[in-house]
């Protein structure tokens, strides 16, 4: 007690910090997370501002300059099988790849959290209906499910986003439901009811406040899965269509050049790997930052 007291006395000018401000401060002290965040930020910014970076046209090919090696003058990252500038295509490719990596997770986060919260808090029949429906989707391996849904809906960016969202909703709902169920039976929910809080207040304030953290961490980890799945869909011809630059698709088309120029052929994979691992590290960092009890 006295240690905390001393700490409290020592910072008289300090304003009351909210939970998220505390988490943010702890997060910013984590070096690995900060490096990953910087790398991601650079990739995202480059993708957004690609047209203003003075890059070569990512669609303009040249038959004579096909499959140049990394480090060739004017082509710092070489050229692909149609002689297009790789640096430009990788940066432009980030636009689509990041979009179909992140958007499905964001959508699934919203839908899954609501469903899980309802199922977990209300319990009974509502829980059974929601969770058993979810189980049906859960029974399929996620890659297979994504391929099946994309196959039914047809190829295209919007359809891959829809199919990936459907793949992630059950996973997030599961996490949300189990966390909600464990929180629901804690005394402070009874205490809130005993002080007159209604069902909606309890769900909005006490449930969401306690449940959001773990789900958020889980969802951050899903972004890398989403990117890899999206790349896989493109690779199979179910995602983006050529000549659109997208990392998964590029990996697919460069596959034929793997014996001629393995360095260039590996580049889209390196990007997918780098972004995935950064998101995974961020998710880990977030998890420890949110555990403010330590």
């Amino acid at each position: 007690m006295s240690a905390t007291d001393a700490a409290l006395q020592a910072a008289p000018g300090q304003k009351a910090r909210g939970y998220w401000a505390t988490v943010g401060r702890r997060f910013s002290r984590d070096k690995v997370s900060m490096v990953c965040a910087a790398v991601l930020l650079a990739i995202v910014l480059a993708a957004i501002f690609a047209p203003w970076l003075g890059l070569a046209d990512p669609y303009q090919g040249s038959m004579v300059r096909r499959l140049r090696h990394i480090g060739t003058p004017n082509y710092p990252l070489g050229t692909d099988e149609l002689g297009r500038d790789m640096l430009s295509r990788l940066i432009y490719g980030g636009r689509l790849s990041l979009l179909i990596g992140i958007l499905p997770v964001v959508l699934a986060f919203g839908i899954g959290t609501s469903l899980g919260l309802l199922a977990g808090y209300l319990g009974g029949a509502v829980n059974t209906v929601i969770m058993r429906t979810i189980d049906v989707f859960y029974a399929f391996p996620s890659v297979l499910l994504a391929i099946a849904i994309s196959g039914v809906l047809g190829a295209g960016v919007v359809n891959s986003i829809v199919s990936l969202t459907i793949v992630f909703v059950p996973q997030i709902t599961r996490v949300a439901e189990s966390v909600t169920t464990s929180v629901r039976n804690l005394d402070f929910v009874d205490a809130a009811r005993a002080s007159g809080a209604g069902a909606i207040t309890i769900m909005r304030v006490h449930m969401l406040g306690n449940v959001l953290g773990p789900i958020f961490v889980y969802a951050t980890g899903l972004i890398s899965v989403s990117m890899i799945l999206a790349s896989g869909l493109s690779f199979l011809g179910l995602g983006t269509k050529p000549p659109e630059p997208e990392w998964g698709l590029m990996l697919n088309t460069l596959r034929t050049a793997i014996y001629v120029n393995p360095g260039v052929a590996a580049l889209p994979g390196v990007m997918i790997f780098a972004v995935s691992i950064c998101f995974n590290m961020l998710s880990d960092g977030l998890r420890s930052a949110m555990d403010i009890r330590n």
Binding site: A16, Y19, L186, D187, F188, D190, A191, A192, R193, A194, S195, G196, A197, G198, V205, H206, G209, N210, G213, R293
Partner: peptide, 27 residues
Amino acid sequence: LSAFRGRTVSMIFQEPALALDPVYTIG
């Protein structure tokens, strides 16, 4: 019931560590 709980009757629990919501301050 909502108006009654907390206003007319209120309750304290056995385990104070569990009866307070961990993500909000006391205030």
